[in-house]
């Protein structure tokens, strides 16, 4: 059953929650209908402030998001949340429990929360999440928060989506230091230390400070380091202010243009790259050629570069549908 996307789009633009939810499902399955709908919605996007919240498992992201929703709602701003959890690489299934923390807002119609499994599908996390964010934006949400587990690809993906990235850490999680070393520091616009009432919060502060000063470019935005206790709401006010400050900085310094362009560039890149790959893997004819070339590369009848060039040329020359 192909749903009438024009109809869905009309309802989404009016803020209809049911239509938005259904369209999100379609985009998650990367269907052509969904992409047609996004094309129609796109002119209406670009108004929301998109905030990425990322950090290791157990750092209290959902609790933090819950408290942020509370704050934004008290300022009468409407909120959209996309909570991404990893899918099982073996079965493709997922247990999505982030909502537990935020479900007190389930009956507030100005809050829309959507859980997503990372699925590890061919589109990657970024593609589907991007479309869900577009839908929330087109629905008229003022604030959109994207919550991802910072492990591997996800936190880099989030830069493609979010204007402001909050990198969350907690004292005592050893792997944090690893992530700092791995260079993901660069993606954070704001650093928050959650559970700051625990031992080790000060140490974490100093660690972050020195890691940041290493990568500091000197001018422009200086990422603040904030201490919060998400469970009690301590420090949330400051965090909201820091997020607001970052937004203002972007606008005033006209960094916002660069920020937007960077994100659009990344989104476009994702779509092009993934469309190619998907076409190769999902279309039966292309797949046959692909598999044949894989075998030839393996047998040394050809090399990977030549094979790739042949595939690209083939795709460009034979447009389908």
């Amino acid at each position: 059953m192909a749903p009438d996307t024009t109809e869905l789009v009309k309802h989404v633009l009016k803020g209809n929650r049911r239509a938005a939810a259904r369209l999100m499902t379609l985009t998650e399955s990367l269907s052509p209908e969904a992409h047609a709908a996004i094309k129609q919605l796109y002119p209406y996007t670009g108004k929301a402030h998109i905030i990425g919240i990322t950090g290791p498992p157990g750092s209290g992201k959902s609790t933090l998001v819950d408290k942020l929703i509370e704050k934004y709602r008290s300022h009468n701003l409407s909120v959209g949340v996309v909570a991404v959890d990893p899918s099982s690489p073996f079965t493709g299934g997922a247990l999505l429990g982030d909502r537990i923390r935020m479900n007190r807002f389930a009956s507030d119609h100005d809050v829309f929360i959507r859980s997503m499994g990372s699925r590890g599908h061919l589109g990657g996390l970024a593609w589907a999440t991007m479309d869900v964010v577009h839908i929330l934006d087109a629905m008229g949400k003022d604030i959109i928060m994207v919550e991802t587990v910072g492990a591997g690809q996800a936190e880099v993906d989030i830069v493609q989506l979010a204007e402001t990235v909050v990198l969350l850490s907690v004292p005592g999680l050893g792997d944090d230091i690893q992530t700092i070393k791995a260079g993901i520091m660069e993606i954070g616009n704001i650093f928050a230390i959650n559970k700051a009432d625990l031992d080790g919060a000060d140490r974490r502060f100093v660690e972050l400070q020195s890691a940041l000063s290493l990568g500091q470019e000197g001018d422009g935005w200086e990422p603040p380091i904030l201490k919060v206790v998400a469970t009690t709401g301590e420090g949330i006010e400051d965090l909201v202010k820091a997020i607001q400050d970052h937004h203002e900085y972007l606008v005033e310094s006209e960094e916002i243009v660069k920020n937007r362009e960077r994100r659009c560039y990344a989104q476009l890149e994702t779509i092009i790259e993934r469309s190619f790959i998907r076409k190769l893997l999902m279309d039966p004819d292309e797949r046959t050629l692909f598999d044949k070339l894989v075998a030839e590369v393996d047998q040394r009848k050809t090399d990977p570069y030549t094979a790739a060039e042949r595939l690209i040329l083939h795709l460009i020359k034979t447009p389908k549908k």
């Binding site: 899918s87 493709g92 299934g93 247990l95 429990g97 389930a106 009956s107």
Partner: peptide, 17 residues
């Protein structure tokens, strides 16, 4: 989840709404 579904769990004591 093991059967490949995406399972959303709400936590305890949820109202009908």
């Amino acid at each position: 989840r093991d059967a490949g579904f995406e399972v959303i769990y709400t936590g305890l004591r949820q109202t009908p709404e």
